[in-house]
Amino acid sequence: MRFWITVCIGAVALLGGIGIDGAFAVKPEDNRATREKGKRIYERSCIFCHGSEGKGDGPAGWYLGRYEAPRPRDFTTESFKFRSTASGELPTDQDLFRTVTQGIPGYMPSFAGLNEEERWQVVSYIKTFNPSFKEEKPQPLPLPLPPGPPTDAGIEHGRKLYMKYGCHSCHGDNGYGDGSESLKGNLKDSRGLTISARNLTERESLKNGSTPRDIYRSVMTGLDGTPMPSFADSFAGKEKDAWDLIYYILSLSQDRR
């Protein structure tokens, strides 16, 4: 018994060492020191999926989707899905920061457990894998505020647009991700792996965020590297239409609650 008492006292003494660090929320300058710190974080937190050279070839990578999509992002060559920028462009720092903070439902955990400074540091580091980040200055597309609360007429109009623009062919008539293209297995990502269209009725599974503005961003920018196209051109100058469509998509998950 005495042995265990000693042990417990020892454990409590050690515990005193666990402090609370109130690190603070400033974006550090993107310099060598920042990237070095980012590298250290990357090698503890990200390497098992994204690989030491950022090629998306960490040892845990294949198990995620097995023979299907997704695999961890290859930062050296692949395009990015979750951007505020036009299709074909790199993401902004803010976009990368958001992905690291929110995680990707199903496939990548939220790293909100790293403090904000650490998350910025790791963002600085992953940008070093792709030299284009040095040359290009990605600019976000405008992301307007919703014009007002949804209306029944607007949602009904959104449903028509959903059919008109062919969303149903991938996402299914009722948004369950069971459109004909999806069911036939025709949808592939840039690695040639089978990918399914998102089930839009499950809001918590949206990878790029689930607020109205998040969904607006997904539809306008598209998810590069997947069959999900950008609809920025289709909705150019038709902002009201765009919001009707977004509200319709949101109504798909609301019905189920």
């Binding site: 098992f48 960490g58 040892p59 845990a60 198990y63 995620l64 989707g65 097995r66 995680g103 439902p105 199903g106 496939y107 990548m108 955990p109 939220s110 918590e204």
Partner: peptide, 16 residues
Amino acid sequence: NMNCTACHTAPPILNT
């Protein structure tokens, strides 16, 4: 909010 496969090769075996 993750699939089992993020941590398991096949439950209950863990990946790295």
